[in-house]
Amino acid sequence: MTLFHFFNCAALTFGPHAVYYQATPLSEYDTVGSCIRAALVYLGTTLIKLVCLATFLHGTESEGFDFTQEILKALIGFLDVAGLYFALTQLTYRNISQTHKFQAIGLGWAFADSLVHRLAPLWVGARGLEFTWDYLLKGLESNANLVFTVCLAALGSLMWLRKNKPATLVPIIYASAGLVATMPSITSYLRKGLHWDFSKVVGFELAASLAMAFVTWRLFSACQRPS
């Protein structure tokens, strides 16, 4: 029965990635390779991030929201952007259109993130007898995270790969990218600084991810038009 719950949570956590791959043209162009490369880059980035966190942050024994620590964390979190930059620009892919490239990279990135951050806690926690909403909420959070990652990858591809974009949109693109990149710090502030409920935080994340998806979509299509 509890294994049942584990499978439910796992489906909610990892299902959207598979659905995304299957439902969009990504599957038709066989972009698994790109996804795996992005995942490997993610793993490397995370390793560097871990080293940085271990070096620059002192142990967080307190549960509270420490401002300087969080700033440092946010700065280290920007390594993700660097990793995405590397994945988007430095790696060579078999001819794959730009639209699919960022999607594949975002998907691989988000999937690796979910796998690393959520599978083990899920396996340990959701199989327990005690029922909590936490793992279902974490599954929803994983959904929001997927949207955020794809948004960031899309904005990144706009920033670094598209040359002829309307000049008026550039600051908006950069601002949106910055907002998405600082999202982990924002949620961390909501949780620790304002002591929000986990359910409320997840709700916020879902709403924010939808909003960012909309903004990114508008920006992307706006940039698409002139070309």
Partner: peptide, 24 residues
């Protein structure tokens, strides 16, 4: 332990399944 019922688990399964289906 506070445990959820099988009915609840089934309901969650349906909800997750339909969510994924609609997403698709």
């Amino acid at each position: 332990y506070q445990v959820a019922s099988v009915t609840f688990d089934l309901f969650i399964m349906l909800a997750v399944g339909s969510y994924l289906g609609i997403l698709f």
